[in-house]
Design a protein around this nucleic acid. Structure first.
Lengths: 300, 300
DNA sequence: GATCATTCATACCTCCAGGGTATCAATAGC
DNA sequence: GCTATTGATACCCTGGAGGTATGAATGATC
């Protein structure tokens, strides 16, 4: 009957993710008994069992799984409310653009140019984040608009594709495979990928104890590629803008293309967001047309 | 820095809607001083002014307006989490279908028939609500899927149009206008509409002191129509299924068509919802095709 | 199969924060 | 200038959130 409280949802999500009251309490920075009690009260309040627990095992019930999903989105909505309000109240409102460094298809400068001429434009501010962090930044109210690689988890978001391009593999120029002009994924079996790369699951994979720090910037990654320690998948635009003597880019026949898209919260009402989306789409169309004519001129 | 709490958001929304601390406190069933204090703390916590207040007037700041919007959706998400979890834990899971009585375009029985043959179907349960209440029922987790009249506020919802039909005006058969076969809106100026009808704003319009209880069912409305107290806008399907001697239906030239649509929460994952949506779309397509052939046969 | 370790639940205590009452202060209206 | 209205302040009190100590149940081990 009574409302749920944010605290209850946070605690529930912690337990549901850890499936262990002790560890969850630890993560929440509190003792285990009050956590157990809060979960018990929550179950009473809802009139529903959320966990099946023995002293040896905790697992989610069906209702628990439903609540986990909804609790996460509810918590996102609450933190987004706080972040957006803080931002809206700040003296200098800005358009916060979330993206992963270097993953902009080379379009960002032109988009920013076109955007800045729009009368509704606010000063832009880049919010850099790791791979896949952009949708979350939108949902949490830390950014107003984002450049992302599709497909993304678009719950609560709207998006528009901008640019589709092939994905190349970057490997040491000395790699035997670099001698070939065409590869497939099977050829790459056994090669290392940089930690934090798209292939990682991210949520479930715990960092292996002896793992090196995830290399998050291109320079570090290219150093590793040059030495042959890893191979790396890069969209064609990234490859084009990062020619390096020791690095060879090769197409991979069975690797799907990747699509750069622009995304924003579905309920965004800000004219600055609209202006940026307009600018991005216009630049993408222009870019597409240019590629077309280029292809025609080269085939002719 | 710290999380917002549901209580803070509820209080904030109450004040933002009333723009009066005393009335808001009243509505919340509490005294005014702790409410003022909570709002003050909330503003400190966010580092943002949410209201401009003098002792005589309270109004929202820009940040306040942003927060009002986001707070409403966050509160919806929280209550939805509670309702969905309760429902998921109930012994007999059902597909809860929200609709306004009589507004189903006459398709509901066929849709239910088709739906019930789907292996993923759960027993259906109708959730009846007033005009415009269906999207809210979806957002609050009180229903799983809804039949609505477009356009709706579809934040957080997905929808699919099923059926577009003209809107007729229902008036007393004795009404002078009933003698005409074609009307426009201007002809109806000055006529009363039933309270609670689409034309009402709903949120901002307070019920006038002497107003009669909103007639929420068709029988009551038709009684009033027959006596000439009101006129009433009804989709053609409603008119077709409710022929009454004392009531005349007439087309209105400048009244836009209305569209019946099916809507569901954007993040719905339930196979029963998917089955119902499939069934509804299939019936709509069949209905459309049937209308086509009917038109061809009549024009031929 | 007896012992032990692990882990969730229970009992009890403490303290803070959310709510109430009384009152002040500022502003608009007459 | 007086009064009514309304938000802010001061102060108190109680409920509930969190901590500690401990119990109880289950799986593992020898």
């Amino acid at each position: 009957m009574n409302d749920l409280e944010v605290r209850q949802l946070r605690y529930f999500v912690a337990v549901a993710e850890e499936l262990h009251f002790g560890r969850a309490a630890d993560r929440l920075g509190m003792a285990q008994p009050p956590l157990s009690r809060t979960i018990r009260d929550l179950e009473r309040q809802l009139g529903v069992a959320l966990f099946e627990r023995t002293t040896r095992q905790v697992k989610l019930t069906g209702a628990g799984e439903v609540l986990l999903r909804d609790a996460r989105t509810a918590l996102e909505a609450v933190t987004a409310a706080a972040h957006r309000a803080r931002h809206a109240g700040s003296a200098s409102p800005r358009l916060r653009i979330a993206l992963k460094a270097d993953i902009d298809g080379g379009l960002l400068p032109q988009i920013l140019d076109a955007y800045s001429t729009d009368p509704a434009a606010l000063p832009a501010e880049l919010v850099l984040g790791g791979f896949g962090a952009q949708p979350q930044a939108l949902r949490d109210g830390l950014a107003d608009v984002a450049l992302v690689l599709s497909p993304i988890d678009d719950r609560g978001l709207d998006s528009e594709p901008l640019l589709t391009e092939p994905v190349l593999v970057a490997m040491a120029a000395t790699d035997p495979l670099a001698a070939r002009t065409q590869l497939c994924l099977a050829d790459l079996a056994g090669r290392n990928l940089p930690s934090g790369a798209p292939a990682d699951d991210g949520r479930t994979a715990p960092p292996p104890p002896g793992a090196t720090r995830p290399a998050s910037n291109l320079s570090e990654i290219f150093s590793l590629v040059e030495t042959g320690s890893i191979v790396f998948f890069a969209p064609a635009s990234v490859a084009r803008r990062n020619p390096r003597p020791g690095v060879a880019y090769r197409p991979v026949s069975d690797l799907p293309n990747c699509t750069l898209a622009i995304a924003w919260p579905q309920d965004a009402r800000s004219p600055a967001v609209a202006a940026f989306v307009r600018a991005a789409c216009a630049i993408a169309v222009a870019h597409h047309a240019q590629a077309e004519t280029h292809m025609q001129s080269t085939t002719a």
